[in-house]
Amino acid sequence: MRGVDPISNIIRFFLLVFLQVFIFRQVNLGWGGADYVFVLVAPLFVALLPLRTPRPMVVIFAFLLGISVDFFYETLGVHAAAATFTGYIRQFVLAILAPKDGYKVKASPDGKDLSRTWWIQYLGFIITAYAVFYFSMEAFSPVFWKQILLKSLFTIPISWMLCGILVSFLRPRI
């Protein structure tokens, strides 16, 4: 669960899909007949893929995660699109947030070399990208920009917080 090896990533994959579809899927709060608050933890898998993963493979793994979540959400393609987008955007987030001396891929066994600030920023970017793209795909038209904005505004802080807790609890390496 905490390592960069394939087994850890596979376990992480199933754990996060399980959390997303069996626990956090039940969370949907809203008013006026529409839900605005969701919890998205699935993008954490994309965020925690090893740094050295080839970029196309990141996109493909993200797609697999999204399509797995979709099977349980019965919205085939929506999560997959959002996850694919997140997987693609990850390389740019990493480039933006790169420390001055670059990433020490093998330096630390438990990710402590990456500061808490870095983790919060990184997760913020990933969750935002995932949430905005997910709600856009769900609405599927720019006509519903208000709903997209509201859902994103309510969903992002909660998911961000939860993912931050998970990361600090697990202290994974990437």
Binding site: P54, R55, P56, V58, V59, I60, F63, G66, I67, D70, T75, L76, G77, V78, A80, A81, T84, F85, G87, Y88, Q91, M137, E138, F140, S141
Partner: peptide, 28 residues
């Protein structure tokens, strides 16, 4: 490579969305 993969999978996702989700297919 990542961009090409991204575009390809995104197109696949669009296809899946339009063919498997009734609100989206109606909008489309």
């Amino acid at each position: 490579g990542s961009f090409i993969t991204f575009v390809g999978l995104q197109l696949l996702c669009m296809y899946l969305i339009i063919n498997n989700n009734s609100p989206q297919s109606k909008i489309f």
